[in-house]
């Protein structure tokens, strides 16, 4: 059935006003991005052109409800070739930033973020590896600037982003 609907125009403006999202309005749907995209060619779940279309038409809910925006592998193939010089990868980051702020965050991403807050790294170094490193003559790892990092995350409100997520989950 065809539905009558009002397009939520301010959504594209919302994206365009964010750092990273500035070029979203330039898209003219030529499909260069889609044919450049290794992910789109592998799965039907993701098509960059289609997500841009949804953003431009103001389909806010649809954009955030599917997991599509998290499927960009940030290979920049599309961004290199876009004839309108749309910075697609950055727009995807901007979309994810909005999603994250609203609590739509895939689990693996919150794990990365917790690791970052706790260890200053997103991949922890196991005891096994530490021993192994010594054995093969690698220098001991330097200390990580976790304290400084936490201060940074506190100013930007990044830590609260996660707390919110924690409460919700």
């Amino acid at each position: 059935m065809t539905e009558t609907k009002e397009f939520n125009v301010p959504f594209s403006k919302e994206v365009a006003s964010r750092y990273g999202g500035e070029t979203v309005m330039l898209c003219y749907q030529c499909g260069t991005c889609a044919s450049s995209c290794p992910v789109a060619k592998t799965t039907e779940k993701f098509n960059p052109r289609e997500i841009f279309r949804l953003v431009l038409l103001g389909e806010r809910q649809e954009v955030f409800q599917s997991n599509a925006i998290w499927l960009c592998s940030s290979c920049y193939n599309c961004q290199e070739r876009c004839p309108q010089m749309v910075e697609l990868v950055d727009v995807f980051f901007a979309l994810r930033n909005i999603a994250a702020k609203e609590g739509h965050l895939p689990k693996i991403y919150s794990e990365f973020a917790f690791a970052l807050m706790n260890d200053g790294r997103i991949v922890p170094v196991s005891k096994f590896i530490e021993r192994k490193r010594e054995q093969i003559g690698l220098p001991p790892l330097k200390t990580i600037g976790t304290e400084a990092l936490r201060k940074i995350l506190a100013v930007t409100g990044f830590d609260k982003l996660l707390l919110k997520k924690e409460v919700e989950s």
Partner: peptide, 27 residues
């Protein structure tokens, strides 16, 4: 090897907040 380096803030972190990521990289 310098003391105090952290994560570079790659795409997984950029996905959460671009500006924070810039700050971490800049740090």
């Amino acid at each position: 090897d310098l003391e105090g380096m952290t994560c570079c803030a790659p795409p997984p972190v950029q996905s959460l907040d671009l500006e924070t990521s810039l700050a971490i990289a800049a740090y």
